[in-house]
Structure formats: C-alpha cells, structure tokens
Amino acid sequence: MKRNSRAFLACAYWAFVVYLFVPLMLMVMMGFKDSKFIGFPIRSWTLEWYLGVFRDTEVLSVFGYSLLIAILSTVLSLAIGTWIAAFLNSYRTFPGRMLVFGLTLLPAVVPGIISAISLRIYARVLGIEPGLWAIVWSHAVHNVPFVVLVVIARLSTLPPSQTEAARDLGADPLIAFIRVTVPYLRPALIGAGIFCLLLSFDDFVRSFFLGGYDPTLPVLIFTRLHSGMSPEINAIATVALVLTAIVGIWAERSMRRMRKEQNA
C-alpha cells in the first residue's frame, strides 16, 4: 500500500516535469528546423535561424531595450522597496502600519490586465508618454511588493545592537545604514533584484499597454506571432529562454550559498 502510493506520487512528479520541460524542448528543437513551416516532423536541420537572431539588428536592439528596462526598473524597485521595508520594520507600533503594509502589497494581487490598464490610464493622467519610462515605472510598481517582502524578512532578523554599535562608534544614522544595514541586507537585495530582473524582462502585459513604438522582447515575439509562427521566432524565444534560465540558476545558486553561510 505504502509502496504503491509512493510510486504513484513519483510518477506524478516526473509526469509534471515532462509537462514542464517537453514544450520548451520542442520549441528549442523547432528553431533548428530547416523549413519556414512550423510543425512536425522535422526532416532536416539548420543553424540558420539562430545565426539570424544575432544578425537581426532589430532583435538585438530589442534585447538591449528589454535589458535596459529590466535594469532600470530593478534599481528603482530595490531603492523604493528597501525604503518602505525600513519604514515598516522600524515602526511596528505605528497605528497606520497595517494599512500601509496592505497598500504596499496591493499591486501583487491586482490581476495583470487590470494592473496594466490602470497604469495606462494613470500614465495618461500624469502626462507620462508611453515608452521607456512608462514601462520602467509600471514594472517598478509591480515589483516593489516582492522587494518589500524579501527585504523585510531579512531586516527583521537584524539585531538592533548592530546599528546601535555603529552609532556608538561614531556613525550617524545614514552611515550606520550604509555601512552596517546594507551589507546585512545584501543577500536579500541580490535575491530580490534578480527576481525583479526576471519579472521585468519577462513581463508582457504592462510593457504592451505602456509601451510606445519600441517593443520589448515579449511584445516583439507577440506581434511577430500575430503574423504567423516561424522558426525565427523559436530562435528568438530560445535565446530569451537561455538568458533567463542562466540568470535564474545563477541566482538560485548564490541564494543557496548565502543561506548556507547564514546557517553556519
């Protein structure tokens, strides 16, 4: 009985793994197909589509644009999120704290399309033109809740004596924060930062509604898909996939190393 249930659960797990990986692997494979026509079976293979990605200046500049947006919005989210986390962590008895905390998490529970539309309307009201800064701003709004959650979790484990010791040794509150609190937060900031990078780089709906004429990478793939599937899109998507997977795995590894250090 016990062995049966274990076997069933193991099957469920591996079936789930297959479900997650097979579509992506097929997509990667299809990028090597020597035909303009998407579909199986694949009879002959080529590298042409992948080489094409690196020759296509539009695609390359879109990569750069997406990366720029991801970096800018991540920096912004980290700064704002840390600020709010510091506030929420320092004044635990402040009467409006739960309200501020709830509002901080609000963008995380608003469904994507509604978030994008409300931000689109708001950008219009504020006079922010659709484009780079509108997207950066919308991504920052969406990412701040995650940064706050991660940073506050770490901040709450900082012994108060750490900053007190810095003050005691002659540091004013600002220097104490920069020289003691920020190094302590480093793992949380790195983890949250990578999460933000991925969220921003992968985001479609906000970039779509707040973008100007220049598409981000997901928007480019989306619009090209509208005019039909082609192995070229597979190649672009695969390069994006490899990029995000590398960042993700690297993040996971560094997070785990830090967790180990923490436990030691």
Partner: peptide, 13 residues
C-alpha cells in the same frame, strides 16, 4: 562613550 554589547554586535561582514 563606547559600549560592549551583550551579543557583542560585531559586524559580520
């Protein structure tokens, strides 16, 4: 005035 804290509060980094 300087202080030796109960948990020493040495800066870990």
């Amino acid at each position: 005035v300087n202080m030796v804290f109960q948990d020493y509060a040495l800066f870990p980094h």
